[in-house]
């Protein structure tokens, strides 16, 4: 901004604003003040022209620029998510679970009653990853993802930051897409944290060698690591699908804790439904049913049909709830 004009305005300001109006001088002074304004108005076009060059991109490079801008917002969103103390705490907690399981197994061993998968960990550290994921994928991982997803829009609305993001303008569809990506990345991070923690704990505490799959086939260790990747990726997609459910819930309210609770209750509710035998026909349509299908990667051959079906269910959930989130958020009045 021009320093000359700053000088000008500071000198005239006290005259217009701070001097009490006196008979006979007030009108003239005000006239002068308005005159100033219109003079300044004349210089406006110049200021705007400078503005376009200084801070804002040219419109000509709109499409690559738009992609870069979206990446920047995604980066900002991720930075926010992974800098937030609450989220860091959840990731640390998740990372602790495989360690705790490993220590418990090492300390107490296992007897005849324990499932084979548990005893297998003692024989092969790599199995700890699968064991940890199978234990966490039903509640703790969905909980972590539900917190981030339920908080995504409702939290911003509650804090009032949503109105500033939208006037920035982040764009509603764009912001929602960025939030969805953020939730997906957090879901992947959460699964990866469990997998990596499981791998490291397993490597440190137990012998590592060729992996016995559920089908009884034994595969080399690298194949086992590959399967860890598949399992992690599959679980992350499942968590992302839940994340979009949470995102949709999050657009419905301004109370983040309500959105988080609703998301987690959805998970628990659908697990209860899935556990009732009489409601068996409903099971294939529940999100929770398919989370544990990652064990398809531990069969020989890999149960691509079951996992593929799971991925389709995840995609269907993501599509429907993503659309609901968009339908709600793109037209919602932001009154917070």
């Amino acid at each position: 901004m021009s320093t000359v004009e700053t000088e000008n305005s500071t000198s005239s300001a006290p005259t217009a604003a701070d001097t009490p109006p006196e008979p006979g001088t007030g009108t003239a002074t005000r006239g002068a003040a308005i005159g100033d304004a219109s003079v300044a108005g004349g210089a406006r076009s110049g200021a705007v022209a400078r503005a376009a060059g200084a801070g804002h991109r040219d419109r000509s490079d709109a499409s690559p620029g738009a992609a870069r801008a979206v990446l920047r917002l995604v980066g900002s969103e991720l930075g926010l998510t992974f800098r937030r103390p609450r989220n860091i705490a959840m990731l640390i907690l998740l990372a602790c679970v495989p360690v705790v399981i490993g220590v418990a197994l090492k300390a107490f061993g296992s007897d005849e009653e324990t499932p084979a998968i548990v005893t297998q960990v003692a024989g092969n550290g790599l199995m700890l990853t699968f064991l940890s994921l199978s234990m966490l994928v039903q509640l703790l991982l969905p909980l972590a993802v539900g917190v981030v997803a339920g908080d995504s829009i409702a939290g911003e609305a509650n804090a009032g930051t949503l109105r500033y993001l939208l006037t920035a303008p982040a764009g509603r569809t764009r912001l929602l897409a960025v939030k969805a990506v953020n939730i997906g990345v957090f879901g992947l991070a959460a699964c990866a944290v469990v997998a990596v923690s499981g791998l490291i704990t397993g490597l440190v505490m137990f012998p590592v060698g060729p992996v016995t799959l559920l089908s009884g086939t034994t595969v080399p260790i690298m194949d086992g690591v590959l399967r860890v990747l598949i399992v992690t990726g599959y679980s992350a997609v499942g968590m992302a699908a839940l994340g979009l459910v949470g995102l949709a819930v999050s657009t419905l309210t301004e109370v983040p804790i309500g959105a988080v609770a609703a998301t987690v209750v959805t998970v628990v509710f659908s697990q209860v439904i899935g556990a009732i035998p009489q409601l068996g026909p409903v099971r294939p349509y529940l999100l929770t049913t398919w989370w544990s299908s990652f064990d398809g990667a531990l069969r020989d051959p890999i149960a691509t049909d079951v996992m593929g079906q799971g991925l389709l269910v995840f995609a269907a959930y993501a599509l429907v709830f993503g659309a609901i989130a968009w339908g709600r958020f793109s037209g919602r009045d932001i009154t917070s």
Binding site: G55, R57, A66, A168, R174
Partner: peptide, 18 residues
């Protein structure tokens, strides 16, 4: 910086300075 990132027309190179 967070709000600046939300503006698709803002130039990230000048963000800190602005």
């Amino acid at each position: 910086l967070r709000y600046d990132a939300a503006d698709p027309k803002a130039d990230p190179r000048t963000a800190r300075q602005r």
